[in-house]
């Protein structure tokens, strides 16, 4: 049993994967669908892949169509994130996660952010409102 932290469900589902942590907000239009690698210049994750990972980031940015289109293209290539943990929800990103059926949570116990680091194995259970750091 790993350490558990409370959270709040945005998009339903359960996911378990390796964590990747971004300090910057994300626009999924500027991630290469073929690899899942962030191509936005000067982004915290530039050059890193978030494909099939648990993506931990502040929130979304960009116009009213870019998140859905970006996640759709990633999904089509099997490279969308396995799950998402955010701090600032807004409608454009939230609706896109729900439609693309990617588990997403927010309002996580602040202690989680002190523990979590890149490469940790993490399980999100959005339906029961908790996150677990497995190793």
């Amino acid at each position: 049993m790993g350490k558990q932290f409370k959270c709040h469900k945005i998009s339903e589902g359960v996911a378990e994967a390796e964590a990747v942590v971004s300090k910057d907000s994300i626009m999924f239009y500027l991630i290469d669908p073929a690899t899942g690698v962030v191509i936005e210049k000067a982004h915290d994750l530039e050059g890193k892949s978030m494909a099939n990972k648990i993506l931990i980031f502040p929130g979304g940015k960009g116009s009213s169509v870019v998140q859905a289109d970006g996640l759709y293209q990633l999904n089509a290539k099997g490279n969308s994130p396995a799950g998402m943990i955010i701090q600032n929800p807004e409608t454009v990103l939230v609706s896109s996660a729900i439609i693309m059926e990617i588990p997403m949570v927010d309002k996580v116990d602040p202690a989680f952010y002190e523990e979590i680091k890149d490469g940790d194995r993490v399980r999100i259970d959005a339906d029961h409102g908790y996150i677990e750091i497995l190793s």
Partner: peptide
């Protein structure tokens, strides 16, 4: 939705909408 539309109708017309995505 449409990024120029949401602020215009909220600010100028005093109508009400969240910053919807095209899908929502």
């Amino acid at each position: 939705s449409e990024s120029s539309a949401t602020p215009y109708i909220n600010a100028v017309w005093g109508a009400r909408s969240n910053r919807e995505g095209a899908n929502s």
